[in-house]
Design a binder for these strands. Structure first.
Length: 597
RNA sequence: GGGGACGUAGAACAGUCUGGAGUGUUCGCUGGCCUGUCAAGCCGGAGGUCGCGGGUUCAAAUCCCGUCGUUCCCGCCA
């Protein structure tokens, strides 16, 4: 009872059990339901622990008829067993009830905008406008609890392993690469800006140089990019780094952490090591670097059987260095409109078109391009895709990366389970070190502090070189990534150079960091994964907004507080900042419109 | 930056395609009845700027244009 205000509450709802029969207790919470039968009334009282039924005699408690849903109340009474035949097996406290003696309304409630109930499915904007009520719903209460359990498990596990939890700054330097930074203008140094961190990357490396050896942080990170169901402006990562570490040390540690979280939140023991797949294999088989391995429908190389067929598109793709890939989509309800829709989707994913084939009853392949293929070519397609009657086969011919990623996208659309009952963890390893943009520019594929797998490869053939980066994937969602870092300032400089950052620029932007690397930097490696995404999947949700207590909408707004808002010109003046152009027009309306007089 | 979907009572929807009186369903709200319910039940009642603006039409929730909002996706997301 320590810390409990006894006048208001002696027990939590879940604690009212048969052992307390005959005793006087006081519970407090919200009225979930009132069932008033005239001569007898029932109140379901909900607190954070659960529900307990209260029985009241309206003749003894005049106010009972006035009690409404979600009134916050405190009720004293004697615990009694429920009469025979009225036990509610659905309820943990279903064998008992409280016979009300005193009922006090701590705080009444207006009529609710929506029911506090998982059966109700109000529009998300309404939920966010009254998020405090939304959080009372069992689903959201469970999600908050799961998230807390997840972070508790992370802290417990890492503390046991000797990690230090260390906070790094959230007002940092802006760096132009990567995602757009969230910027914060400086008042003391007008015209200069801080950025909110996209990750604590450099600070955790500095902690390694600082001799910490094992660091972690549950860190808020910010990226000013467009929203998705699994992306918000601000999100939370487990950020972790270790000295004298290589890849295996990181993967082992992260596996231990993820298994601990899965056990804590889901109650599942994952005994096996997470499977590993190389980036190349992931792309070839699944068309993505974050494969969902809960279902098959793998992509198959058809370059050899049909690349030299009479179909010009296949020929063209192959002769210019591309490939033909296929996917057995299984039995689909096939129609012209379905074919058109899939083709549209393929185009959206970057394809120029999509070839479809349907296996007819007689085993023949019906397709707009059948006539261009020889019987043995058609047979080879059927065989390689293990096609049986009714199956729809989808073929894409293009540059390798386009072909596989188009089919990978379609594979996800067509085959992906909608729930997360199964947990398919996966390591993706051996990522390319760099990516070549369409314009030939080279950018990093992880971040510029990632160690190359081989210095010789990096120097001789940068676009083919591999890195020591790795990703953790769960059910086709990228949980996070990490790498062995560069701890040699010379190699770091070489990487900058390959990225087209000349030494003067590198010195200006990262000189302080390069300098730090020159004082006996230990080899180190680390990882970061998104806690929002992890909890989302463990809670079988399909949006991280469901596991973030106060998320923003897709346009970056908070329907409850109205954020973001305009600020006074005075405030802007202190910062040396002024609105211009479109921003002014949004605030004040069109400027050059003659006023109607 | 681009594409799709959605917006009707406090909430969730149907009605929109094929224009004809704000029509309807469930929950909530409200008045009454009711002593064992647990999504209580029964009888009655209130509640609407069909997101907003414009257009077409004798007539618009419905068709057209614009706009705002929400959402999913492409781009983007080291």
């Amino acid at each position: 009872m320590v810390g409990q205000p006894r006048m208001i509450r002696s027990h939590r709802a879940i604690e009212i059990t048969t052992g307390l029969v005959g005793e006087k207790v006081t519970v407090a919470g919200w009225i979930q339901r009132r069932r008033d039968h005239g001569g007898i009334a029932f109140l379901d009282i909900r607190d954070a622990s659960g529900l307990i039924q209260v029985v009241a005699d309206p003749s003894e408690h005049e106010g009972v008829a006035d009690l409404r849903m979600e009134y916050c109340v405190s009720i004293s009474g004697r615990v009694q067993e429920r009469p025979e035949g009225t036990v509610n097996p659905e309820l943990p406290t279903g064998e008992v009830e409280i016979k009300a003696q005193e009922i006090s309304v701590l705080s009444p409630s207006e009529t609710l905008p929506f029911m506090i109930d998982d059966r109700a499915d109000p529009d998300e904007k309404i939920r966010l406008q009254h998020r405090y009520l939304d959080l009372r719903r069992p689903r959201m209460a469970a999600n908050l609890k799961a998230r807390s359990k997840a972070t508790a498990a992370i802290r417990r596990t890492l503390d046991d392993l000797g990690f230090l939890e260390i906070e790094t700054p959230t007002l940092v330097n802006s760096t132009p690469e990567g995602a757009r930074d969230m910027l914060v203008p400086s008042r003391l140094r007008q015209g200069e800006f801080y950025a909110l961190p996209q990750s604590p990357q450099l600070f955790k490396q500095l902690l390694m140089i600082g001799g910490v050896e094992r660091y972690f942080q549950i860190a808020r990170c910010y990226r000013d990019e467009d929203f998705r169901a699994d992306r918000q402006l601000e999100f939370t990562q487990l950020d972790l780094e270790g000295s004298f570490w290589g890849r295996e040390d990181v993967l082992d540690t992260i596996e231990v952490v993820l298994k601990a979280v899965a056990k804590e939140v889901r109650g599942v023991e994952i005994a096996d090591d997470f499977p590993r797949i190389t980036w190349q294999e992931a792309m070839d088989r699944f068309g993505t670097d974050k494969p969902d391995t809960r279902f098959g429908m793998e992509i198959v190389d058809l370059t050899e059987p049909v690349g030299e067929s009479d179909f010009g598109v296949f020929q063209g793709a192959v002769s210019s260095g591309g490939t033909v890939r296929g996917l057995n989509a299984g039995v689909l309800d096939w129609s012209r409109s379905r074919a058109d829709a899939l083709t549209e989707r393929a185009k959206e994913l970057g394809a120029k078109g999509l070839v479809w084939m349907v296996v007819e009853e007689d085993g023949s392949l019906r397709s707009p391009i059948s006539k261009f293929l020889k019987p043995d070519e058609l047979d080879a397609v059927k065989e390689r895709l293990e096609a049986t009657v009714g199956d729809v086969l989808l073929l894409a011919a293009d540059r390798w990366k386009t072909a596989v990623s188009v089919l990978g996208g379609l594979r996800n659309d067509l085959g992906r389970p909608t729930d997360h009952d199964e947990l398919a963890f996966l390591w993706v390893v051996d990522f390319p070190l760099f990516e070549e943009e369409e314009d030939g520019r080279i950018t990093f594929s992880h971040h510029p502090f990632t160690s190359p797998a081989s210095l010789e490869d990096m120097r001789s053939n940068p676009t083919e070189a591999l890195s020591k980066a790795y990703d953790a994937v769960l059910n086709g969602v990228e949980l996070g990534s990490g790498s062995v870092r560069i701890h040699d300032p010379d190699i770091q400089s070489q990487v900058f150079e390959i990225l087209g950052i000349d030494s003067a620029t590198a010195e200006r932007r990262f000189g302080w960091f390069l300098q730090a690397l020159r004082y006996g930097t230990p080899p180190h490696a680390g990882f970061a994964f998104g806690i929002d995404r992890l909890v989302m999947i463990l809670q079988n949700e399909n949006s991280i907004r469901e596991v973030i207590p106060f998320p923003k909408t897709q346009t970056g707004g908070d329907p409850m507080t109205g954020a973001p808002t305009w600020v006074d010109d005075d405030q802007l003046g202190e910062l040396g900042v002024a609105l211009s152009g479109a921003a002014l027009e949004r605030r004040d309306g069109p400027a050059d419109k003659p006023s109607a007089s």
